[in-house]
Design a protein around this nucleic acid. Structure first.
Lengths: 205, 205
DNA sequence: GGGAATGTGGCACAATCTGCCACGAGGCAG
DNA sequence: CTGCCTCGTGGCAGATTGTGCCACATTCCC
């Protein structure tokens, strides 16, 4: 099962600094998630997380600009996976198909981590603040998907067709994501495939 | 030109209380926008806004759960317009066409208020906090669109097709919105129509 | 080994946002 | 018109988040 902590770079060539940093960051994330699930988002302060993860609040805010970002961490991970999926697609594949496949891979990642993600979903639903500001794919992350997609071939990253394609794909994935965590259908990836078929495939060509 | 202050309810039957409240709220919004555009979001405190609008900070947070919500106000207004557009559509119209037309109406509203909206766009772009948490259509607002659409006819508001349709429509609108505020094309509404055609129309039937 | 680069912690501080209570203006019935 | 009730408002105290600044420790690299 793919893990949460990952180094964004392929090789295992990490300096001691980076390893320490990643370990500390991962510990922080896991401590935060555990506390959130136990007590609820609003009942856990940054201070609490720092005590559990054994770091200073000042350091916490170096890892995460805001407390919300800890909850949004899975989104970042999923976007990173999608980027990898796009980069790995063979040249010549239409953009829509590339995105479709990349998001299917993200979907299988979600399925692998269903338990944790449903836990975090409950955390979001139970916090009035998170309900109003739910974790989502940030515009800069979406822009990265566009850029990555445009990098294959000579497409214009600023063109509205490409941006629309990505926006619809992300929207479709989100619709499936909500369905899946709410009531896991028997064959979730087939469901995702169907949703993406409607959302993404019309943009082919 | 349609105004920003509106009472959500059709009739002019407002009590003095409601009128006062709306006036105070509108004054707050306009004061805040003016200050944001003048100095930048991060350089304006809630205190500053309250002085300019002549209300207490405590009252400010009764109108707006957070400072961010003042910037997101146009989004709320646009969603409200879309809801009205959907409600006004004649029965029997396919959902996709209904949404398409409703969003065209919202588009013309955006065109009417271009100056202000570009100002607020600049505000967003210049604030690191707003860049990370840009004003967007909140999930509850999107859910309202779904509900409203489902209310015509007997569709299932929880079905993924309807939710996907709305999500893609909103995504398409956002893509156009960014284009339009960045570099107004000669015929913006035609552009919006084209984008929506790609994003929404495939979902017909 | 030693300087440079970088991550960390502590401190002080501004700012956001909330709960609580009291006051006053608007609404309503008599 | 009068009294009562409802509800918006303001003030206050407080918790919490998030940031700038600086000193210290660790790691890196020569």
């Amino acid at each position: 099962m793919r893990s949460w902590s990952h180094t964004e770079r392929g090789g295992p060539i990490e300096s001691l600094r980076e390893r320490k940093r990643e370990r500390s960051r991962a510990a922080t994330v896991e401590a935060a998630w555990r506390l959130f699930i136990e007590r609820g988002y609003d009942q856990v302060t940054v201070q609490d997380i720092c005590v559990a993860a054994d770091i200073a609040p000042r350091t916490f805010h170096r890892y995460f600009p805001s407390k919300d970002d800890v909850v949004a961490e899975p989104m970042r991970r999923m976007t990173a996976l999608a980027l990898e999926g796009i980069a790995a697609a063979p040249d010549g594949t239409p953009d829509a198909a590339t995105l479709h496949r990349a998001l299917l891979a993200v979907g299988s990642f979600v399925v692998e981590h269903r338990e944790l993600l449903t836990g975090l979903r409950t955390v979001v639903l139970q916090s009035s603040h998170l309900r109003a500001n739910p974790p989502s794919v940030r515009p800069d992350q979406e822009a990265r998907l566009v850029t990555q997609l445009a990098a294959r071939g000579d497409r214009d990253p600023a063109g509205w067709r490409l941006r629309l394609l990505v926006a619809c794909a992300v929207a479709g994935f989100r619709v499936w994501y909500e369905d899946y965590l709410h009531e896991a259908p028997p064959d979730p990836l087939a469901h995702l495939d169907a949703v993406l078929h409607t959302a993404v495939d019309p943009h082919t060509g």
